[in-house]
Write a protein that binds this DNA or RNA. Sequence first.
DNA 1: CCGTTTCGTAAGTCATGACTTACCGTAAGT
DNA 2: ACTTACGGTAAGTCATGACTTACGAAACGG
Lengths: 111, 111
Amino acid sequence: MTYETALAVLGDPTRRQVFERLRGGPCPVHAIAAGMTVSRPAVSQHLKVLKDAGLVEERSEGVRRIYSLRREGLAELRDWLDSFWDDALLAFKIEAERTHWQIKRTRDGNE
Amino acid sequence: MTYETALAVLGDPTRRQVFERLRGGPCPVHAIAAGMTVSRPAVSQHLKVLKDAGLVEERSEGVRRIYSLRREGLAELRDWLDSFWDDALLAFKIEAERTHWQIKRTRDGNE
DNA sequence: CCGTTTCGTAAGTCATGACTTACCGTAAGT
DNA sequence: ACTTACGGTAAGTCATGACTTACGAAACGG
């Protein structure tokens, strides 16, 4: 989805914990909940939010629902982050063209 | 600071709006609030949170407080995001352990 | 000086959403 | 068929935090 959604969804610590739990690989719900302090329904609810945000995908295996990470869901967020550094480069270039001063700066911004 | 903080802080839409407003360059508080629907104190409060998270920095100019973006505050979050792809690469590498592939994702900006 | 601009903080309100327990359907084992 | 494991959904509670207005302090202009 959008980077806004990803940020809002991953902003919650518990939900992030669920998300990171899946870095180890696909996992059924009860196994995710086992390592956490909150109840299993709470985990289910977080998984639904994560799924709606495209950060996680679900597959059925009998009575189990196996959830796994969906890294593409993070792509927009990553691009958004990168664009901030593009901003810095752009501003740097404009500034360099506008003024002929010698510029000694760090890569991150003004000082 | 940590990527957890960055995610929690940027999770709020209004706060993100304040943050993105600063992409255009340093800005005093009243000017930020001018383009928004919420009150000026609300903006101040968001700026405080952003500053505590290291995402923004403040400088005084007379009676004005000029806020500007602090891109380093995003670095940890970006690294965290990248690490997800590292996960994928690692798993892939293990999978293809017999063939000696060189996989590389290029990105500038690393200090 | 005195009024204005700028901004942070205090105090209080209110909605959102993260939990809980309870319940239901479904699949599998015996 | 009965029992158990698994997990989604409903309903209700409760705390967090995002707002508001009101106020005080600091710099500046007239």
